[in-house]
């Protein structure tokens, strides 16, 4: 476990896996889109609008998946002080928020032809909206500190609190929804799903997961590089060349000033 905590090990691993992840994402994404848009049958009631499902449902899964992933990273950072876990949790948040937002947008686009309105306070959509709020809260908290490490730690704690709350929120929203709306509203997914619809759905889910891991690897790498740059700036090395280039004089160089010159 801790072997992968070393950034160098992680980066090497990510480099090796990257082409494979890209290949899987492109192939499953392409096939999934083709199957979803052309091969699978149109719904006899909804017509072609049902094809929105092939984006909508996997993004909903990914929204939840990313949040749980964020909470797991948070737990790893709190329990094992795993240095990469914080960075991974931080890198996951915007991706998860984007999936959740996409889910809400496609849900709204799908709702218009189905229900004649852009937004219904449907239990699933409302839960996803609250999930989006949880993501936004996490991102705001993580970026609200001058010390990025402190922000990441606070975020990890929040993600854990949030993940305990997600089932409670889901349960209470379901309860609220059945109270206020009779069950006549059409459900977005039928009780049983035809294999011709299941295949593109699954392929799209795999593609989105692959996309998530690609973005995660890129974001973690750039965050690590950013830390290295900050460390270099702290070291005062940039002042050696010409005094005009850098704002590094703004940093408190501390007792490390002059080291290595």
């Amino acid at each position: 476990m801790h072997r992968f905590a070393k950034p160098s090990v992680f980066l090497k691993l990510a480099d090796t896996l990257m082409p494979w992840m890209i290949a899987i994402t492109v192939i499953t994404g392409g096939t999934g889109l083709y199957l979803g848009l052309f091969w699978s049958p149109a719904d006899y009631q909804q017509g072609d609008t049902v094809r929105i499902m092939y984006i909508h449902v996997p993004t909903a899964w990914m929204g939840l998946f990313c949040y749980v992933g964020m909470a797991i990273c948070g737990a790893m950072s709190l329990i094992w002080k795993h240095p990469l876990a914080d960075i991974a949790a931080r890198a996951t948040a915007p991706v998860g928020a984007m999936f959740t937002a996409l889910c809400l947008i496609t849900g709204s686009l799908w709702g218009e032809p189905m229900w004649g309105t852009w937004w219904v306070w449907d239990a699933r959509l409302t839960s996803m909206l609250i999930l989006l709020f949880l993501y936004l809260g996490y991102m705001a908290l993580v970026n609200a500190f001058d010390d990025p490490e402190r922000g990441s730690k606070a975020g990890s704690a929040l993600a854990l609190v949030g993940v305990v709350n997600v089932p409670i929120v889901k349960f209470s929203v379901d309860w609220w929804n059945t109270l206020h709306q009779p069950a006549s509203v059409a459900r977005m997914d039928g009780p049983s799903i035809d294999p011709s619809m299941l295949w593109p759905l699954m392929l799209m889910a795999v593609a989105f997961t692959g996309y998530y891991f690609i973005i995660l690897a890129i974001r973690v790498r750039s965050e690590l590089n950013e830390r290295r740059i900050r460390a270099l700036q702290l070291s005062g090395l940039f002042e050696q060349g010409d005094g005009t280039t850098s704002g590094s004089a703004l940093y408190d160089q501390g007792h490390n000033a002059g080291a290595g010159k």
Partner: peptide
């Protein structure tokens, strides 16, 4: 405590986190 300072260059030689 100055005796225990880590020169930044040496530190950067390794990755920041390990």
């Amino acid at each position: 405590l100055d005796e225990f300072a880590i020169p930044m260059m040496e530190w950067l030689a390794g990755a920041p986190d390990d």
